[in-house]
Amino acid sequence: MTDATYPQYRIISARFLKPDTAERLLNRIVEIGGIRRMSINGPSIPATVPYGPARGKPNPHPDRKVIHIGDQELQLRVQVGTILLELEDESPASAMKEACDEVFGDLGFSYTFQQGRYMKTQPTMSDYAKYGPDADTMVLGLVDPKRKDRFTVVQGR
């Protein structure tokens, strides 16, 4: 991990977002640029029923769908509730807040835009013990580095 400290932000909506709204919001944010890392959080929507008598059966869910962010397709696996951002510097933050104001303006519920520490900036002792010295530091603390599917790289404008 680099020595520099990058500013981190999070956007929390008062209600969970539908995939279309999440797509609109994320596209507005990505257009502004200056993002190093981004993570979309929320409760999981599994592809199959995880437990109970119907365990293992397919779980068709209208909100588990592919959205397009920038030039990339992204399979949503969660109902979007929180967006974590790590920016190159603080300059795009105000434009992002304005983009949020615009998107949430028509939705009828509020959101919060906060600056703080929301992602790991360096591997912890347990990360080292679990994943070894070669773990990809860009995704540490955001996703399980042992997952087979990789994170999505959204190219600039």
């Binding site: 969970f16 109970g52 209208p62 939705l107």
Partner: peptide
């Protein structure tokens, strides 16, 4: 919800429905 009941303490969805991992009702 007989199983996978998670959702009672979560935020509501945009349309006011309680979160349901299995989306039993639409």
């Amino acid at each position: 919800r007989g199983a996978t009941v998670h959702g009672h303490s979560l935020r509501l969805a945009e349309d006011g429905m309680m979160f349901d991992m299995l989306q039993r009702c639409v």
